[in-house]
Write a protein that binds this DNA or RNA. Structure first.
Lengths: 165, 165
DNA sequence: TTAGATGGTTGTGAAATGCAACCTTATGCT
DNA sequence: AGCATAAGGTTGCATTTCACAACCATCTAA
Protein backbone atom coordinates (compact mmCIF):
# COMPACT_ATOMS: atom_id res chain seq x y z
CA UNK A 1 0.00 0.00 0.00
CA UNK A 2 1.39 3.37 -0.95
CA UNK A 3 -1.34 5.84 -0.10
CA UNK A 4 0.83 8.68 -1.40
CA UNK A 5 -0.19 7.75 -4.91
CA UNK A 6 -3.53 9.04 -6.03
CA UNK A 7 -5.50 5.82 -6.47
CA UNK A 8 -6.21 6.41 -10.09
CA UNK A 9 -2.64 7.12 -11.00
CA UNK A 10 -0.76 3.97 -10.12
CA UNK A 11 -3.18 1.96 -8.12
CA UNK A 12 -2.20 -1.05 -6.11
CA UNK A 13 -4.27 -3.83 -7.43
CA UNK A 14 -6.29 -5.60 -4.81
CA UNK A 15 -9.19 -7.86 -5.58
CA UNK A 16 -11.59 -8.59 -2.79
CA UNK A 17 -8.74 -7.82 -0.46
CA UNK A 18 -6.37 -10.20 -2.21
CA UNK A 19 -3.07 -9.21 -3.79
CA UNK A 20 -1.95 -11.12 -6.82
CA UNK A 21 1.73 -11.43 -6.13
CA UNK A 22 4.12 -10.75 -8.95
CA UNK A 23 1.27 -10.70 -11.42
CA UNK A 24 0.31 -7.29 -10.14
CA UNK A 25 3.11 -5.78 -12.19
CA UNK A 26 2.99 -8.14 -15.13
CA UNK A 27 1.89 -6.96 -18.56
CA UNK A 28 1.02 -10.50 -19.44
CA UNK A 29 -1.49 -10.81 -16.65
CA UNK A 30 -3.47 -7.72 -17.62
CA UNK A 31 -3.43 -8.60 -21.26
CA UNK A 32 -4.52 -12.15 -20.64
CA UNK A 33 -7.20 -11.14 -18.18
CA UNK A 34 -8.57 -8.40 -20.39
CA UNK A 35 -8.60 -10.81 -23.27
CA UNK A 36 -10.61 -13.39 -21.41
CA UNK A 37 -13.36 -10.95 -20.57
CA UNK A 38 -13.38 -9.21 -23.92
CA UNK A 39 -13.50 -12.49 -25.78
CA UNK A 40 -16.28 -13.86 -23.66
CA UNK A 41 -18.28 -10.73 -24.26
CA UNK A 42 -17.66 -10.95 -27.96
CA UNK A 43 -18.62 -14.61 -28.04
CA UNK A 44 -21.92 -13.76 -26.48
CA UNK A 45 -22.59 -10.99 -28.93
CA UNK A 46 -21.88 -13.33 -31.81
CA UNK A 47 -23.49 -16.43 -30.33
CA UNK A 48 -26.26 -16.44 -32.92
CA UNK A 49 -23.92 -16.10 -35.87
CA UNK A 50 -22.59 -19.62 -36.57
CA UNK A 51 -19.07 -18.27 -36.78
CA UNK A 52 -18.96 -17.47 -33.08
CA UNK A 53 -16.07 -18.41 -30.85
CA UNK A 54 -12.41 -18.57 -31.57
CA UNK A 55 -9.92 -16.03 -32.61
CA UNK A 56 -9.31 -15.98 -36.30
CA UNK A 57 -12.65 -16.20 -38.02
CA UNK A 58 -13.61 -12.56 -37.79
CA UNK A 59 -10.34 -11.33 -39.16
CA UNK A 60 -10.36 -13.92 -41.89
CA UNK A 61 -13.88 -13.10 -42.96
CA UNK A 62 -13.16 -9.38 -43.19
CA UNK A 63 -9.92 -9.96 -45.06
CA UNK A 64 -11.62 -12.13 -47.65
CA UNK A 65 -14.38 -9.56 -47.95
CA UNK A 66 -11.87 -6.78 -48.55
CA UNK A 67 -9.34 -8.65 -50.67
CA UNK A 68 -10.98 -10.97 -53.16
CA UNK A 69 -8.58 -13.69 -54.17
CA UNK A 70 -6.50 -13.46 -51.00
CA UNK A 71 -4.52 -16.58 -50.15
CA UNK A 72 -4.59 -18.68 -47.00
CA UNK A 73 -0.92 -18.13 -46.40
CA UNK A 74 -1.43 -14.38 -46.37
CA UNK A 75 -4.13 -14.81 -43.81
CA UNK A 76 -1.94 -17.04 -41.69
CA UNK A 77 0.60 -14.28 -41.81
CA UNK A 78 -1.81 -11.69 -40.49
CA UNK A 79 -3.16 -14.03 -37.85
CA UNK A 80 0.34 -15.09 -36.80
CA UNK A 81 -0.88 -18.65 -36.75
CA UNK A 82 0.42 -21.74 -38.46
CA UNK A 83 -1.15 -22.99 -41.64
CA UNK A 84 -3.05 -25.93 -40.21
CA UNK A 85 -4.83 -23.60 -37.81
CA UNK A 86 -5.53 -21.15 -40.59
CA UNK A 87 -6.74 -23.90 -42.88
CA UNK A 88 -9.26 -25.02 -40.32
CA UNK A 89 -10.55 -21.54 -39.79
CA UNK A 90 -11.10 -21.36 -43.53
CA UNK A 91 -12.78 -24.75 -43.47
CA UNK A 92 -15.34 -23.49 -41.00
CA UNK A 93 -16.02 -20.37 -42.99
CA UNK A 94 -16.43 -22.43 -46.13
CA UNK A 95 -18.71 -24.89 -44.33
CA UNK A 96 -20.81 -21.96 -43.19
CA UNK A 97 -21.13 -20.89 -46.81
CA UNK A 98 -19.50 -17.54 -46.21
CA UNK A 99 -16.43 -17.89 -48.40
CA UNK A 100 -15.36 -19.98 -51.33
CA UNK A 101 -12.05 -21.55 -52.35
CA UNK A 102 -10.69 -21.48 -55.89
CA UNK A 103 -7.35 -22.46 -57.31
CA UNK A 104 -5.06 -19.49 -57.73
CA UNK A 105 -4.48 -18.70 -61.38
CA UNK A 106 -0.79 -18.06 -61.19
CA UNK A 107 0.15 -20.82 -58.76
CA UNK A 108 -1.44 -24.24 -58.86
CA UNK A 109 -0.48 -24.99 -55.29
CA UNK A 110 -2.22 -22.00 -53.89
CA UNK A 111 -5.83 -21.10 -53.34
CA UNK A 112 -7.69 -17.90 -53.92
CA UNK A 113 -10.47 -17.10 -51.49
CA UNK A 114 -13.64 -15.23 -52.33
CA UNK A 115 -16.56 -13.98 -50.30
CA UNK A 116 -20.07 -15.21 -51.00
CA UNK A 117 -23.19 -13.09 -50.81
CA UNK A 118 -24.00 -14.67 -47.51
CA UNK A 119 -20.47 -13.97 -46.32
CA UNK A 120 -20.65 -10.38 -47.39
CA UNK A 121 -23.84 -9.86 -45.43
CA UNK A 122 -22.27 -11.58 -42.46
CA UNK A 123 -19.21 -9.37 -42.68
CA UNK A 124 -21.45 -6.35 -42.36
CA UNK A 125 -23.14 -7.82 -39.35
CA UNK A 126 -19.79 -8.54 -37.79
CA UNK A 127 -18.59 -4.99 -38.38
CA UNK A 128 -21.67 -3.73 -36.63
CA UNK A 129 -21.11 -6.05 -33.68
CA UNK A 130 -17.51 -4.91 -33.35
CA UNK A 131 -18.63 -1.31 -33.46
CA UNK A 132 -21.20 -1.98 -30.76
CA UNK A 133 -18.75 -3.74 -28.56
CA UNK A 134 -16.22 -0.99 -28.86
CA UNK A 135 -18.85 1.46 -27.74
CA UNK A 136 -20.67 -0.51 -25.11
CA UNK A 137 -18.04 -2.74 -23.64
CA UNK A 138 -15.15 -0.34 -23.66
CA UNK A 139 -17.17 2.53 -22.27
CA UNK A 140 -15.06 2.19 -19.15
CA UNK A 141 -12.17 3.84 -20.93
CA UNK A 142 -12.47 7.56 -20.42
CA UNK A 143 -12.82 9.47 -23.69
CA UNK A 144 -9.64 11.41 -23.00
CA UNK A 145 -7.75 8.14 -22.46
CA UNK A 146 -8.99 6.40 -25.54
CA UNK A 147 -6.56 7.83 -28.05
CA UNK A 148 -3.59 7.34 -25.84
CA UNK A 149 -4.48 3.78 -24.92
CA UNK A 150 -5.14 2.93 -28.53
CA UNK A 151 -1.80 4.39 -29.51
CA UNK A 152 -0.05 2.33 -26.88
CA UNK A 153 -1.76 -0.82 -28.07
CA UNK A 154 -0.92 -0.11 -31.68
CA UNK A 155 2.68 0.53 -30.87
CA UNK A 156 2.92 -2.58 -28.78
CA UNK A 157 1.33 -4.56 -31.55
CA UNK A 158 3.59 -3.17 -34.25
CA UNK A 159 6.74 -3.76 -32.27
CA UNK A 160 5.68 -7.22 -31.35
CA UNK A 161 5.12 -7.98 -35.00
CA UNK A 162 8.49 -6.64 -35.94
CA UNK A 163 9.98 -8.92 -33.38
CA UNK A 164 7.96 -11.81 -34.66
CA UNK A 165 8.97 -11.57 -38.31
CA UNK B 1 -4.91 6.90 -45.03
CA UNK B 2 -3.98 10.04 -43.19
CA UNK B 3 -0.35 10.68 -44.02
CA UNK B 4 -0.37 13.84 -41.91
CA UNK B 5 0.15 11.74 -38.81
CA UNK B 6 3.70 10.87 -37.92
CA UNK B 7 3.89 7.11 -38.35
CA UNK B 8 4.82 6.39 -34.75
CA UNK B 9 2.17 8.61 -33.32
CA UNK B 10 -1.01 7.14 -34.70
CA UNK B 11 0.18 4.69 -37.24
CA UNK B 12 -2.08 3.18 -39.83
CA UNK B 13 -1.83 -0.49 -39.30
CA UNK B 14 -0.89 -2.40 -42.37
CA UNK B 15 0.31 -5.96 -42.33
CA UNK B 16 2.11 -7.18 -45.38
CA UNK B 17 0.29 -4.50 -47.26
CA UNK B 18 -3.09 -5.57 -45.96
CA UNK B 19 -5.44 -3.38 -43.98
CA UNK B 20 -7.64 -5.04 -41.41
CA UNK B 21 -10.83 -3.17 -41.92
CA UNK B 22 -12.69 -2.00 -38.86
CA UNK B 23 -10.43 -4.04 -36.63
CA UNK B 24 -7.71 -1.49 -37.16
CA UNK B 25 -9.40 0.77 -34.65
CA UNK B 26 -10.77 -1.90 -32.34
CA UNK B 27 -9.45 -2.31 -28.82
CA UNK B 28 -10.66 -5.86 -28.83
CA UNK B 29 -8.52 -6.80 -31.77
CA UNK B 30 -5.27 -5.58 -30.28
CA UNK B 31 -6.02 -7.11 -26.91
CA UNK B 32 -6.95 -10.43 -28.43
CA UNK B 33 -3.99 -10.48 -30.75
CA UNK B 34 -1.51 -9.50 -28.08
CA UNK B 35 -2.98 -12.14 -25.84
CA UNK B 36 -2.55 -14.88 -28.39
CA UNK B 37 1.13 -14.18 -28.82
CA UNK B 38 1.86 -13.55 -25.17
CA UNK B 39 0.07 -16.70 -24.13
CA UNK B 40 1.83 -18.80 -26.70
CA UNK B 41 5.17 -17.46 -25.53
CA UNK B 42 4.26 -18.18 -21.94
CA UNK B 43 3.11 -21.68 -22.78
CA UNK B 44 6.47 -22.38 -24.30
CA UNK B 45 8.33 -21.03 -21.32
CA UNK B 46 6.28 -23.24 -19.05
CA UNK B 47 6.09 -26.27 -21.30
CA UNK B 48 8.24 -28.37 -18.98
CA UNK B 49 6.24 -27.51 -15.87
CA UNK B 50 3.20 -29.84 -15.94
CA UNK B 51 0.94 -26.92 -15.19
CA UNK B 52 1.55 -25.34 -18.55
CA UNK B 53 -1.25 -24.04 -20.75
CA UNK B 54 -4.47 -22.38 -19.85
CA UNK B 55 -5.32 -19.22 -18.08
CA UNK B 56 -6.05 -19.71 -14.43
CA UNK B 57 -3.45 -22.06 -13.08
CA UNK B 58 -0.68 -19.58 -12.49
CA UNK B 59 -2.88 -17.13 -10.65
CA UNK B 60 -4.43 -19.89 -8.61
CA UNK B 61 -1.09 -21.36 -7.63
CA UNK B 62 0.28 -18.03 -6.49
CA UNK B 63 -2.88 -17.20 -4.58
CA UNK B 64 -2.78 -20.48 -2.70
CA UNK B 65 0.89 -19.93 -1.99
CA UNK B 66 0.22 -16.47 -0.60
CA UNK B 67 -3.05 -17.15 1.18
CA UNK B 68 -3.09 -20.49 2.93
CA UNK B 69 -6.62 -21.68 3.45
CA UNK B 70 -8.04 -19.61 0.60
CA UNK B 71 -11.30 -20.90 -0.82
CA UNK B 72 -12.15 -21.89 -4.37
CA UNK B 73 -14.93 -19.34 -4.55
CA UNK B 74 -12.50 -16.56 -3.74
CA UNK B 75 -10.28 -17.74 -6.52
CA UNK B 76 -13.17 -17.90 -8.93
CA UNK B 77 -13.86 -14.32 -8.01
CA UNK B 78 -10.36 -13.20 -8.84
CA UNK B 79 -10.28 -15.19 -12.05
CA UNK B 80 -13.71 -13.95 -13.09
CA UNK B 81 -14.61 -17.47 -14.04
CA UNK B 82 -17.48 -19.66 -13.00
CA UNK B 83 -17.02 -22.28 -10.35
CA UNK B 84 -16.92 -25.34 -12.56
CA UNK B 85 -14.02 -23.83 -14.45
CA UNK B 86 -12.28 -22.89 -11.25
CA UNK B 87 -12.90 -26.30 -9.76
CA UNK B 88 -11.22 -27.97 -12.68
CA UNK B 89 -8.22 -25.70 -12.46
CA UNK B 90 -7.91 -26.72 -8.83
CA UNK B 91 -8.29 -30.36 -9.82
CA UNK B 92 -5.30 -30.10 -12.08
CA UNK B 93 -3.18 -28.41 -9.47
CA UNK B 94 -4.16 -31.06 -6.93
CA UNK B 95 -3.43 -33.84 -9.42
CA UNK B 96 -0.03 -32.32 -9.97
CA UNK B 97 0.56 -32.48 -6.24
CA UNK B 98 1.06 -28.75 -5.92
CA UNK B 99 -1.88 -27.89 -3.66
CA UNK B 100 -4.10 -29.72 -1.25
CA UNK B 101 -7.79 -29.48 -0.39
CA UNK B 102 -9.09 -29.54 3.15
CA UNK B 103 -12.52 -28.90 4.56
CA UNK B 104 -12.86 -25.38 5.84
CA UNK B 105 -13.17 -25.32 9.60
CA UNK B 106 -15.95 -22.82 9.83
CA UNK B 107 -18.02 -24.01 6.92
CA UNK B 108 -18.44 -27.63 6.06
CA UNK B 109 -19.47 -26.89 2.51
CA UNK B 110 -16.36 -25.00 1.72
CA UNK B 111 -12.80 -26.03 1.12
CA UNK B 112 -9.58 -24.55 2.31
CA UNK B 113 -6.66 -24.81 -0.06
CA UNK B 114 -3.06 -25.18 0.97
CA UNK B 115 0.19 -25.24 -0.92
CA UNK B 116 2.43 -28.28 -0.78
CA UNK B 117 6.21 -28.19 -0.69
CA UNK B 118 6.27 -29.12 -4.31
CA UNK B 119 3.75 -26.41 -5.05
CA UNK B 120 5.75 -23.83 -3.17
CA UNK B 121 8.85 -24.65 -5.17
CA UNK B 122 6.81 -24.51 -8.34
CA UNK B 123 5.39 -21.13 -7.39
CA UNK B 124 8.93 -19.81 -7.15
CA UNK B 125 9.77 -21.21 -10.56
CA UNK B 126 6.67 -19.63 -11.99
CA UNK B 127 7.52 -16.24 -10.51
CA UNK B 128 10.90 -16.46 -12.12
CA UNK B 129 9.40 -17.35 -15.48
CA UNK B 130 7.00 -14.43 -15.29
CA UNK B 131 9.86 -12.12 -14.43
CA UNK B 132 11.83 -13.41 -17.39
CA UNK B 133 8.98 -13.03 -19.77
CA UNK B 134 8.29 -9.50 -18.65
CA UNK B 135 11.91 -8.65 -19.35
CA UNK B 136 12.56 -10.63 -22.47
CA UNK B 137 9.26 -10.71 -24.25
CA UNK B 138 8.10 -7.21 -23.47
CA UNK B 139 11.41 -5.63 -24.29
CA UNK B 140 9.69 -4.06 -27.28
CA UNK B 141 8.01 -1.59 -24.98
CA UNK B 142 10.27 1.39 -24.63
CA UNK B 143 11.36 2.00 -21.04
CA UNK B 144 9.78 5.43 -21.06
CA UNK B 145 6.48 3.92 -22.21
CA UNK B 146 6.39 1.12 -19.68
CA UNK B 147 4.92 3.01 -16.75
CA UNK B 148 2.33 4.69 -18.81
CA UNK B 149 1.25 1.55 -20.59
CA UNK B 150 1.08 -0.33 -17.33
CA UNK B 151 -1.02 2.42 -15.83
CA UNK B 152 -3.41 2.27 -18.73
CA UNK B 153 -3.73 -1.46 -18.43
CA UNK B 154 -4.33 -1.28 -14.69
CA UNK B 155 -6.95 1.37 -15.09
CA UNK B 156 -8.67 -0.56 -17.81
CA UNK B 157 -8.59 -3.66 -15.70
CA UNK B 158 -9.93 -1.96 -12.59
CA UNK B 159 -12.76 -0.28 -14.44
CA UNK B 160 -13.65 -3.46 -16.22
CA UNK B 161 -13.84 -5.23 -12.88
CA UNK B 162 -16.04 -2.54 -11.40
CA UNK B 163 -18.33 -3.02 -14.30
CA UNK B 164 -18.24 -6.75 -13.89
CA UNK B 165 -19.23 -6.86 -10.22
C1' DT C 1 -38.53 -25.77 10.10
C1' DT C 2 -38.59 -24.64 5.76
C1' DA C 3 -37.21 -21.84 1.79
C1' DG C 4 -33.60 -19.87 -0.35
C1' DA C 5 -28.77 -18.68 -0.83
C1' DT C 6 -24.03 -20.33 -1.05
C1' DG C 7 -20.11 -23.72 -2.01
C1' DG C 8 -18.68 -27.25 -5.12
C1' DT C 9 -18.96 -31.18 -8.47
C1' DT C 10 -20.35 -33.72 -12.60
C1' DG C 11 -21.88 -34.24 -17.28
C1' DT C 12 -22.02 -32.77 -21.93
C1' DG C 13 -21.02 -30.94 -26.32
C1' DA C 14 -18.35 -28.01 -29.12
C1' DA C 15 -13.84 -26.21 -30.30
C1' DA C 16 -9.22 -24.64 -30.37
C1' DT C 17 -4.22 -25.46 -30.10
C1' DG C 18 0.22 -26.87 -31.52
C1' DC C 19 2.98 -30.38 -33.64
C1' DA C 20 4.47 -33.70 -36.96
C1' DA C 21 3.89 -36.09 -41.20
C1' DC C 22 2.52 -35.95 -45.88
C1' DC C 23 1.35 -34.60 -50.78
C1' DT C 24 1.80 -31.36 -54.55
C1' DT C 25 3.65 -27.69 -57.24
C1' DA C 26 7.35 -23.98 -57.90
C1' DT C 27 11.85 -22.47 -57.93
C1' DG C 28 16.69 -22.38 -58.08
C1' DC C 29 21.16 -24.34 -58.85
C1' DT C 30 24.48 -26.99 -61.40
C1' DA D 1 17.46 -30.52 -68.29
C1' DG D 2 17.25 -32.56 -63.85
C1' DC D 3 17.36 -32.77 -59.12
C1' DA D 4 17.16 -30.84 -54.51
C1' DT D 5 14.82 -27.78 -51.87
C1' DA D 6 11.36 -24.45 -50.60
C1' DA D 7 6.58 -23.10 -50.30
C1' DG D 8 1.39 -23.93 -50.17
C1' DG D 9 -2.01 -26.80 -47.99
C1' DT D 10 -4.13 -30.90 -45.74
C1' DT D 11 -4.69 -34.63 -42.42
C1' DG D 12 -4.11 -36.91 -38.04
C1' DC D 13 -3.42 -36.79 -33.30
C1' DA D 14 -3.42 -35.81 -28.50
C1' DT D 15 -4.31 -32.44 -25.22
C1' DT D 16 -6.94 -28.91 -23.23
C1' DT D 17 -10.34 -25.46 -22.79
C1' DC D 18 -14.91 -23.42 -22.38
C1' DA D 19 -19.59 -22.35 -21.00
C1' DC D 20 -23.91 -23.98 -19.50
C1' DA D 21 -27.11 -26.78 -16.97
C1' DA D 22 -28.23 -29.96 -13.54
C1' DC D 23 -27.21 -31.68 -9.18
C1' DC D 24 -25.92 -32.46 -4.11
C1' DA D 25 -24.66 -30.61 0.43
C1' DT D 26 -24.62 -27.14 3.91
C1' DC D 27 -25.64 -22.89 5.96
C1' DT D 28 -28.80 -19.01 7.18
C1' DA D 29 -32.58 -16.38 7.99
C1' DA D 30 -37.50 -15.70 8.16
Amino acid sequence: MTPEHPPDDDPDIEIRGLRIDILEGAFSWYIRTLDAVVSRDLDRRMAHLEIARGKGKITTLLLVDDYPGIRPSQIADVLMRDRPATGRIIDRLVDAGTIRREAAQDDQRAQALFITDKGHALADEVREIIRCQEEEFFDFIEPEDRDQFMRQLKRAYLKMRTKWD
